[in-house]
Write a protein that binds this DNA or RNA. Sequence first.
DNA 1: AGTGAGATTTAGAACTATTCCAATGATATA
DNA 2: TATATCATTGGAATAGTTCTAAATCTCACT
Lengths: 153, 153
Amino acid sequence: MQQTLELSSEVLAQRLADSGLRATPQREMIYEMVLKKRDHPTADEVYARVRADMPGISLATVYNCLETLVQCDLVRAVHFERGPTRYCPNLRPHAHFHDEQSGTIHDVNLTPELLAQIRAVLPPGYDARTVEVTFRGKASPLTSSEHRVAGSE
Amino acid sequence: MQQTLELSSEVLAQRLADSGLRATPQREMIYEMVLKKRDHPTADEVYARVRADMPGISLATVYNCLETLVQCDLVRAVHFERGPTRYCPNLRPHAHFHDEQSGTIHDVNLTPELLAQIRAVLPPGYDARTVEVTFRGKASPLTSSEHRVAGSE
DNA sequence: AGTGAGATTTAGAACTATTCCAATGATATA
DNA sequence: TATATCATTGGAATAGTTCTAAATCTCACT
């Protein structure tokens, strides 16, 4: 598990610089927070977590920073159902399993092969930048704790 | 193309009855409207279309009826991005291609085989009721008109 | 046909999530 | 250090949806 071989703050600073943006304490804090707990928080949840360490931050800034992180390809915004946008720090190809009973979300790895097969259904002329796969159903309690990767509170 | 071999109003009445609900003019009208133009309208768009024929209908009723149709499995609610819920009358297994330039949505057929393969990535204990596949990208104009199945205005 | 129970519709208020805005504060560069 | 630009902030504004309470309709039963 090489998580901090490259410091996330450096990755952030680099990506921001690439887009002509500045590294600010708010952006760093929010990026750290989203990476730390690898679930799918809403802006409000991020706001709550960040305020513990940075009490003066505003909700507008949380929205701004999350949007910036999305622009820099450091997190992804997802919309599982109607309701608040959720932010996903997992950048590897994966599907989302939405447990309808608990409301939790589990990441499920996708192989490049399967992704290629899915893309193959597109008629010529369709150029997909991204592919999203979402399951909805129930995960039986016994296995859900073992396989659980991430979920909302 | 056997679209009205079984009258859609009868299908609706049956499904409603199955759930102990009544067939009302508003429910029938909204169901007809959604079937007639097979795109992915928002509640507001349905409201606008329905009002032409039924001027007194309220937006709340449109929301209520659409929700009822979703409960009866006659249409599906989809959320492509932050923004209004869209309603999809296509009940066959299909993916959605979201053209990022035009904002239009195209249905893309999915084979049962591919769906089975996708489901196969789930670890044991995960029981998926539904699978959703969404592409985002651009459809080149030449082919998009040929393959276009449905889109928002 | 009349009546009551419950289902349905309606208008508008309330609510949630998000964006906009104008003022303030921070930063990099000349 | 002045200046231009970028970023943050709080509050107002907006969009989409849900809630609420009253009016209306429908059905089953007389």
